[in-house]
Amino acid sequence: MTTESTTQHVIEARQLDLTFQTNDGPVHALKDVNLTIDKGEFVSFIGPSGCGKTTFLRCIAALETQTGGSLTVNGMTADEARRNRAYGYVFQAAGLYPWRTIAKNIKLPLEIMGYSASEQEERVRKVLELVDLEGFGGKFPWQLSGGMQQRASIARALAFDADILLMDEPFGALDEIVRDHLNEQLLALWARTEKTIGFVTHSIPEAVYLSTKIVVMSPRPGRITDVIDSPLPKERPLDIRDTSEFIEVAHRVRDGLRAGHSYDD
């Protein structure tokens, strides 16, 4: 039993295929995707638009269903995992309900999952502290900046007991300075919560800075061209981005992106 739980991967994709039927014929969003993600990893998916990185994340979340191959999440099918509320999902936009305060927004999944009122209060307090938003629980979303709203949406995804956190370009709409700050906070949060994180981005520095594993993808058909295990230590101050290891990894990611994608079309 113990050997099984150590060998079992949190996410395992084998020969994963996803074809969308469109009016212009079939579109191969994903083809032959093989990937394993282990507990506690921080995995970034990077690639040009149309490479299927978001689609793959949505497959893990069971928001899309593969047309071929197999995909397990926590040893179950993706849809079973979704029903068991195995993951929290952070979208590109914060998507907070304008009619709910920040605290009430974070309570949304807790209400749906049937947590008691006192448990809800306790968890809201805990995750607000985790994303550095203490004291903002009573505010409405429009009273917060974009970066704070996105942090609130991360808090919402952390509020319930999911071991997996899936993030689809969560900081894509934010400016560089806010993004750096949030990246730092996200690493701290990851270290504290020991969650398994899947993170979609199209920023090379962001991917290298955050990840233990970088999955480079390319389009037409959407596929994985390289999987890079980062040699960087788990402790990562922002200035690690000036070290030679960091630059080396970034080079490899860039090469992977070039190899998989001809830029002249």
Binding site: A62, L63, R82, N84, F91, G95, P109, E111, I112, M113
Partner: peptide
Amino acid sequence: AMQLDLLRTYNASQSQGFWKLRLPASM
């Protein structure tokens, strides 16, 4: 679609979706 996807990730029922999302959004 994103709001509906979010509720799907919580495995929310249709009636939860109605009372917590659709109805307030329609005000």
